[in-house]
Nucleic acid binder design. Structure first.
Lengths: 186, 186
DNA sequence: ACCTGAACACCGTTCAAGT
DNA sequence: ACCTGAACACCGTTCAAGT
């Protein structure tokens, strides 16, 4: 079977789910594919871009809420859809957060939200979308790492319900804030 | 001069400022101190805890706004004080963000804000403080990495004023949202 | 107690050489 | 064009041995 970029990405996602980001090395990806590490570099420029591709895959899996929904509801559903996508794979939040930080990755997670905000004639769509995105990412990273530490028994893992409530509270704060800003007329 | 935990932390901060997080290795810290890498492990359990100590140092440098200030103003000033601290050293935001993620580090960046919110009898102080913290961290990480990429000419580095405005907009959104939530009586 | 020297088990990346 | 084998220049961490 020919080595392809797609096969490399798939192997990367498998390692991510099974062993986590810490064990995701180019050599391990090559092992899974039964190939020498150097061979990967014929299909992928470097590790960072592979991680960006994995991030894109995660972000792409976010399905946008119905465009008929009112902005507030739409944003709330978008936020939880994004959260679900991040949580759907091991270390998913960290992969997306760090790929976003270095600015690689073709998928822009907040674009859908920006467009919905623009369509609703809200002021500063990019600022609102970015604020929501930063919160969702930060919260998901924290929740995901805390969960892993709880699994290892390093820290006692508070009720899972508490995390979900804190999440929806944060979203509510930001959505209400955006609302208020719009009413203030700036 | 005897090798101490303090000297190791100081050397770490120097390397961070001069060469960045990517070049901060235990071996390099040891080199700077004129010592073998293994010697560090007598004073510091591992690299992660050294990074947590650096994070603590950065967080500790945040000075709390005057307690006389009204909550809204206080939160706004706290957010920009935290941002300044994160931006004050190379990769500062990423160091704090990742140490916070893994849950090491004795300094809890959001504690001051939680206390101020409690003192003002605002509802859900932890949720509000966490939301603000996640935004400040996310924004600072993005701004800092984008700045470094601009230095390297990889990406054109939009106006620095735009970043500052987006920051204060995000803070405003969250502060207004917290206000609104409080008025709604929940 | 504190540090050296050397090792162990890894990394990401490059590149001549083969097919 | 695509992959192997082997190397380069690193890592974090451990640990016997020295002082």
């Amino acid at each position: 079977m020919a080595l392809t970029r797609e096969a490399i990405i798939e192997a990367g996602l498998n390692i991510l789910d099974t062993y986590g980001l810490g064990d995701l090395s180019m050599r391990r990806v090559a092992d899974v594919l039964g190939v020498q590490a150097g061979a990967l570099y014929y299909h992928v420029p470097n590790k960072q871009s592979l991680l960006a591709a994995l991030s894109d895959e995660i972000v792409r899996s976010v399905l946008p809420p119905s465009p008929d929904a009112e902005v507030d509801l739409w944003l709330t559903e978008w936020a939880s859809g994004l959260r679900d996508a991040l949580m759907s794979r091991r270390d998913g939040a960290e992969v997306v957060a760090s790929s976003l930080a270095v600015g690689l990755g073709t998928q822009q997670p907040a674009r859908q939200a920006e467009e919905r905000l623009s369509a609703a004639s809200m002021p500063h769509p990019e600022a609102i979308a970015a604020t929501l995105l930063h919160f969702v990412l930060g919260h998901a990273v924290e929740e995901q790492t805390r969960g892993q530490m709880a699994e290892l028994g390093i820290v006692e893992g508070g009720a899972p319900e508490e995390g979900a409530q804190r999440f929806s509270l944060g979203v509510k704060i930001i959505v209400r804030g955006a609302q208020t800003l719009a009413k203030e007329g700036c």
